[in-house]
Design a protein around this nucleic acid. Structure first.
Lengths: 193, 193
DNA sequence: AGTTTTGTTGATTGACGAGTCAATAAACTT
DNA sequence: AAGTTTATTGACTCGTCAATCAACAAAACT
C-alpha cells in the first residue's frame, strides 16, 4: 500500500534515527540495518533514499547544524546589546533542544567523521567559522582588542563542555553548562576595570 | 632467527604503531594488519602478543596517559607556589611531547572508545579526576571559593583545545595553546581585585 | 486497459577483517 | 641429543555488512 510523497518523510525518519543511533552507540560503527530498523523500514529502502551510509551521516550532520544555526539566529534576533548577544549564543548552544544526549553523542561522531570525510570537514568548518565570527562581533564592543583571543577561548570552551558532557553520560546538565561558559564571560568583563 | 626477549620490544613497537595509525587515520577503523605492518611484523604476531585489537587500543591509551601523568608530576615537582603549579600543569598538557599530531589524534579516538569500552572509560575517568584534583588544589589558594568552577572550566578548556587541534590539522601550535589556557588563568586572577 | 512512476523488501553478492591454527625455526634446558 | 619454550608467519575460517538486484504492489498518468 505505497502512499505517495513518502520521500521526505522517510528521509526525515532516517536522519532522526541516524542521530539516535549515533548517540546510543557512541561510535560510527552503526549499521545501516540498525538505523533503518529504528526508522521502521528495511535497510534496502534506506539505501534507496540515501545513496550510501556516508550520505546518511552527512544528512544527519547537516540537520543538526542547521537546527543549531537557526536557534542561534533566533536568539540573536531577540537580543539587544553586545552582552545580551553573547548570552544568547551561549544559551542557544546549550539549549534543551541542542544539548540532548543523542545530539551530543552525534557531535562526538561528527568530529571523528570530519577527520576522514572532506564534506564533513567542510560543514564543520562552516559552523566553527560562523560561531567564531558571531562571538568576535559581540565581544569587540565589550573587550576591544581582546575580542580575538576571548572568542577563541570561548569557542574551545563550548566544544570542551560538549565533549565532557558526551563522556559523562546521564542527563545533560544544561544549566551547569551555561553557567560555566557564562562565568568565563563575566570574569572577562570584570577583569576589565 | 628468533632472538629471545622480544615481547617487550614488540609490544612497545605495537603500542607506538597503534598511536601513529590512530592519529593518521583519525578513526578507530584501523585494521590490525595496518598496525602490525607499521610495527614491522605480521598481524598474527600482533594477535599473539596482544589478545585482541581492543587490547592494543587500551595499551596505547595507557601509554599516553602514563606519559602525560609522568610529565605533569615532573613539572609539578619543580614548581613552587600555586600559580607556578597551575602554569606547570598547562605547560605539561601542551608540551611538545604530548601535543603532537598523532597523540592528539589518538586522544580523539580514546574519547570515542570511552563511550563503548568500560576499561577505556575507567582510564579516562582516572585521568580526568586527577587533572581536576590537581587544578583545584593549585587554584584554591589563588581564587578561594571559585576554585571549583575555575578548575572545571579550565579542564573543559584544555579538552576543547585538544579537540580543536585534532580537527584543525597541520602542525600543532603548542605556544598558542598554552597562551590561550594561561590567558584564562590570568584574567581570573586579575578579576580578583 | 496499459504503461510509467514511486514505494518497498527479501535475498544475494562481494569485500573485508578479526582471530585461529599449523608449521617452521632458533634458542635455551637437562 | 632430545625436549621445551619463544618467535614468527602464511593460510584459513567465519562473521559481518554495505550495496545491489529482482520482484512485487499500488498509485498516477494516458
Amino acid at each position: 500500500m505505497p502512499k505517495l510523497g513518502m520521500e521526505p518523510i522517510r528521509k526525515a525518519a532516517l536522519v532522526n534515527a541516524t542521530i539516535v543511533e549515533l548517540g546510543r552507540s557512541g561510535s560510527l560503527d552503526v549499521t545501516v540495518s540498525q538505523i533503518a530498523k529504528r526508522a521502521g523500514m528495511s535497510s534496502a529502502l534506506a539505501h534507496h533514499y540515501f545513496g550510501s551510509k556516508e550520505d546518511m551521516f552527512l544528512a544527519a550532520m547537516r540537520h543538526i547544524l542547521s537546527l543549531y544555526g537557526a536557534e542561534v539566529r533566533g536568539a540573536l534576533a531577540l537580543a539587544s546589546g553586545p552582552e545580551q548577544r553573547v548570552r544568547a549564543i551561549l544559551a542557544a548552544s546549550f539549549s534543551a533542544s541542542n544539548f540532548r544526549r543523542e545530539t551530543i553523542g552525534a557531535w562526538l561522531n561528527f568530529w571523528v567523521l570530519s577527520q576522514t570525510v572532506p564534506e564533513a570537514r567542510r560543514l564543520h568548518g562552516i559552523y566553527q567559522r560562523r560561531l567564531s565570527s558571531n562571538l568576535r562581533s559581540c565581544l569587540r564592543p565589550l573587550v576591544g582588542d581582546r575580542a580575538e583571543i576571548v572568542a577563541t577561548g570561548m569557542g574551545a570552551l563550548i566544544d570542551g563542555i560538549y565533549l565532557r558532557e558526551a563522556l559523562r553520560g546521564g542527563t545533560p546538565d544544561s544549566a551547569g553548562a551555561v553557567k560555566l561558559a557564562l562565568d568565563h564571560l563575566l570574569v572577562e568583563l570584570a577583569a576589565r576595570t
